[in-house]
Amino acid sequence: MAFNKFLKSVVAGSVISLSTIGVVAAETTFRYGEASPNRGARAEALQYFADQLESRSGGDLKLDIHWGGALLKYSAILGGVRSGAADMGSVLAAYAPQEMRALSVGDIPVPQSDSWVGMRAMYELMATNPEMQRAFEDNGVVYVTNMTTSPMQFECAGNTRLESLADFKGKKVRASAIYAKILNDAGANMVNFVFSEVYQALDTGLVDCSGTYLYAMRAFKTPEVVSSVAVMDWGQIAGFGMLMNKWSWDDLSSEQRSLFRQIGSEMIDYYAQKLVEERREVLAELPTGSLGNKVEVISWSEEARAELFAESDKYVQEWIRDMEKAGYNGTQIWDDYQALLKKYQGELDAKGYPWARS
């Protein structure tokens, strides 16, 4: 009798344990490496992704976001995601130029600098082009969706004003990726440091000007230490992806993968709307002094912008050669990317932003 009671308790315990294991197995939490702090438009977009994922999976899929580089710094995120130290992360191609040469196509300055256009073109290219998908899988990761810094502008301290490419000559400037190479060619004295140090560098005179983004000016309070901003809309850093560990991705069901993709697509519209609205607000507020100094807004002419993009040509060819050396069809990928940029720019021109359509 005692044995029967013992057996029943063991069986009951096993059933409870198995049911508990089933619940645990159904709930998957992904460690997410994010090097920026939990503030600003991009942080809101990432939190939107996490909230939508949890809600629409019925709580089965969750992100545990480690903000501000607490888990991994930008330079270590790709390696961390690839090795499984993190399941997912925000990866900038500029910090892993060889491994993420495919993603870096979004860093090449192009005239279609609108945030929504750029992210939409990158998303379709990365999510549908087999060669791009192979390039990620070769590095042990899978592309989920895209982010962007928004269009590149330059903010300047002191009496420095930029109205053309020639004005960069002799100036101390901070920029990254291909933008830095082009400005170096133009005679600028390039200074390298992380974006979080821009405020101090401008305030102390370490640099005359720094590449920036309108939403970041408010977030990093740089209007307190600058006198002008050159609104150039010089492309954008769109080589900025949300990536997942390949093993983690393979463990997902087809329905779960579709959910990640769908929310990733929706996040692009959510984030782009915030960037567009922020741009409008910041441009209106800069001259008033409400953000710090009264900052002069210098809008570049189309002729001055065209000179910038003409300087991109040799770096386009460099990117194509680098891709082909690595075993990919760089020319075809570039042509596909150009077609997608024109497609979404045409859609924007004809219909406006998706959130503003009736």
Rank of each mutant, 00 (worst) to 15 (best):
A2Q: 14
N4I: 13
F6P: 03
L7M: 15
K8S: 13
I16L: 15
S19M: 15
S19Q: 06
I21P: 00
R31Y: 08
Y32C: 09
P37F: 04
P37I: 01
N38M: 04
G59I: 04
D60M: 09
I65Q: 00
L71A: 09
K73L: 10
Y74D: 13
V81T: 00
R82E: 13
R82I: 02
A86I: 02
M88W: 00
A93H: 01
A94P: 04
A96D: 11
A96C: 05
A96L: 02
A96W: 07
A102E: 13
S104Q: 15
D107L: 00
S115Y: 00
W116I: 03
V117H: 05
M119H: 01
R120Y: 08
A121T: 00
A121N: 04
Y123K: 10
A127F: 04
M132K: 01
R134W: 06
D138S: 03
V142T: 10
N146F: 02
M152I: 15
M152G: 02
C156T: 07
A157K: 07
S164C: 04
L165K: 00
V173E: 12
A175C: 11
A177K: 10
A177W: 08
I178F: 15
Y179Q: 09
L183N: 01
D185F: 00
G187H: 00
N189T: 06
F193A: 05
S196V: 05
E197M: 10
Y199F: 12
Q200E: 12
L202R: 04
D208K: 10
K221H: 11
P223W: 08
S227P: 05
G239W: 05
M244E: 08
L252V: 00
S253D: 00
Q256D: 13
R257N: 03
L259W: 11
L259Y: 12
F260A: 09
Q262M: 07
S265L: 14
A284D: 13
A284H: 03
L286W: 08
S290H: 09
S290C: 08
L291C: 11
G292D: 03
V297N: 07
S299N: 15
W300F: 15
W300M: 12
E303Y: 11
A304S: 14
L308I: 12
L308H: 07
S312L: 03
W319H: 09
E324K: 06
K325G: 14
K325S: 15
Y328E: 13
Y328D: 14
G330F: 08
Q332Y: 10
W334M: 01
D335M: 11
K343H: 08
Q345S: 11
A356E: 14
R357E: 00
S358A: 14
S358D: 15
S358W: 01
